[in-house]
Write a protein that binds this DNA or RNA. Structure first.
Length: 501
RNA sequence: AGACUCGUGGUGUAAUGGUUAGCACCUCAGAUUUUGAUUCUGAUAGUUAAGGUUCGAACCCUUACGAGUCUACCA
């Protein structure tokens, strides 16, 4: 892998940053569950740590008690583990509340920060500022009564980050510090300083923080103490992973849950890691997918199909194939002769039944058709998978619908004359099973699509196959797609087979 | 509207001023195939535009155009 981030770090090393001072961090806010987009940030940080043989921290960036909770912390820890990554330490921004408070006090003393009232009035006197700040902390004022702002200067190019808020009052229980604090630091104040405290060398984040970088550096310069940490952390931004219209926002996931469109975060219509785990995706495939897409600064839109086909092409090589029928229609095999036990051995591993009457899929038969139709008809010879070729010679209709297809078996037909192979299930030995079908939730013009319930569809498979199914295992339904056997008698669709007709 | 950032085939990336702009996916052909899948071979297709610097520019400079982010007491 080669990208601008590695180049920039190597450049820093060449300029004198000792390689043993390199340290990275993945710093999510525990206000939602991890999804495919996060894997990008996780991957690059852990990759760099491995590449440079340096430390990496998992830091829970928990500065906002309104939206964070322990459930999300656990979800993040669990999913990073599932991806197979190990960090050197787990840290919490909330552990630094005390240090950050003292740093802020120093900022006030140095005339670099001030209290502002809710009416926009600025407190000038340093002692008064310290007084208010202290009593803000002790909970003497209501939310929004005062804020602490940094007193930035003209060196910052963007006017909007001038005098940014460092602390706001929140009478809200924090999931870790409980009611110890009544003021909470903002991202801009807490993040860079936490990097500095932890001696992170390169702080990677997504592109929307570009505008904040001057402020990031300004804060660091103000608290800089070369005896504690000689090297200032550096923020590097890269663009996030966007998948077409697919929802890639933690906040939206939470909204979907509140609106009861989803029942849990492992809903298959989401690209959360919980959902991928549910689908039994190998985390390696997900990481490889991130890897092939690379790291740049430009805004990108990746097609969901690209992700799906990437996973598909990997699992196709390892999943067991079973035959399943969705829309059954009876086929009578006229010259069927009984075999020993009427079973067929497949790869000497398992057996399926065969009988005079079988089910095939309605879609695999046509009375009239053109030359592009390869499947069963009065004209086409088709092979029943694992069995002989057949051809239709008669049909039975009831109320204008085909109910039965009569076929003859051709044991010695020339291979070249067989146009295709189709799946089937013995009528005698059929077993019904269910699949959960769905489409990914997506958003267009603020409207949520595919938010209807997941559909349950009935399929038929061979009884012998049914009794040997293993829970949580992925299967290929021949010519249909891929499914995960996620609970008794139920499959979860992963994706459809590519079809050219 | 301003500030910041980014523009390489349809999509995602590579090429750090030096061969004919490379790779992967998609698409389309052909081959293989007891899955119209997979696999294999091949084809189509690209430096946003106009200037400038240079022996030489995707790369450096200028301008235009286009896209994204931000202008929160979210991160």
């Amino acid at each position: 892998m080669n990208n601008f981030i590695i180049k920039e770090i190597i450049n820093d090393i060449n300029k004198g940053l000792p390689i043993d001072k390199l340290k990275f961090r993945f710093a999510p806010e525990p206000n939602g569950v991890l999804h495919l987009g996060h894997v990008k940030a996780i991957y690059i940080n852990f990759y760099l740590a491995k590449y440079f043989n340096s430390k990496i921290y998992l830091r829970l960036d928990d500065t906002n008690p309104n939206s964070e909770n322990i459930y999300f912390v656990k979800n993040i820890i669990k999913n990073i583990k599932w991806l197979g990554y190990e960090y050197s330490r787990i840290t919490y921004t909330s552990d630094y509340f005390g240090i950050l408070y003292n740093m802020a006090k120093n900022m006030i003393k140095n005339g670099k920060a001030f209290i502002e009232t809710k009416y926009g009035k600025k407190i000038d006197d340093i002692d008064k500022n310290l007084f208010y700040f202290k009593y803000m902390k002790l909970g003497h004022y209501k939310d929004n009564d005062f804020v602490l702002r940094a007193y930035t200067d003209k060196s910052l190019p963007n006017y909007h980050i001038k005098n940014p808020v460092m602390y706001r009052i929140r009478h809200k229980k924090h999931y870790r510090t409980a009611n110890k604090w009544y003021i909470y630091p903002t991202y801009d104040w807490a993040h860079g300083q936490s990097d500095y405290i932890e001696k992170i060398s390169h702080s990677l984040c997504s592109i929307e923080f570009q505008n904040h970088r001057p402020l990031y550096n300004w804060f660091i310069n103000n608290i800089y103490n070369k005896e504690y940490n000689f090297y200032k952390p550096k923020q590097i931004e890269f663009s996030r992973l966007n998948i077409n219209n697919i929802i890639t926002s933690k906040r939206y996931f939470n909204l979907l849950l509140r609106k009861k469109i989803i029942k849990s975060f492992n809903d298959p219509r989401l690209i959360t890691l919980d959902s991928f785990k549910m689908k039994n995706y190998n985390p390696e495939y997900i990481i490889d997918f991130i890897k092939i897409n690379g790291f740049t600064k430009r805004n990108t839109n990746i097609e969901l199909e690209k992700f799906e086909s990437y996973i598909k092409n990997r699992i196709i090589k390892i999943t067991k194939i079973i035959m399943a029928i969705k829309n059954p229609i009876k086929v009578i095999l006229k010259n069927f002769s009984k075999t020993k036990n009427n079973t067929i051995n497949i790869d000497n591993k398992y057996k399926i039944s065969i009988s005079k009457v079988i089910y095939i899929d309605k879609e695999d038969f046509k009375i009239k058709h053109n030359n592009n139709f390869f499947r069963l008809s009065f004209k086409n010879y088709v092979r029943l998978k694992y069995y002989y070729a057949i051809k239709a010679y008669k049909i039975k209709k009831y109320k204008n619908k085909i109910t039965k297809i009569y076929c003859k078996i051709y044991k010695n037909i020339n291979k070249n004359r067989i146009r295709s192979t189709i799946q089937w299930v013995s009528f005698k030995n059929k077993k019904s099973t269910y699949i959960y079908d769905y489409k990914y939730l997506y958003i267009k013009n603020n409207k949520i699509y595919n938010n209807k319930d997941i559909k349950i569809k009935k399929f038929y498979i061979d009884k012998n196959i049914y009794y040997n199914l293993k829970l949580k295992k992925n299967y290929q339904f021949l010519r249909i797609g891929f499914f995960n056997y996620f609970k008794k008698n139920s499959f979860l669709k992963l994706f459809n087979m590519k079809k050219k007709y």
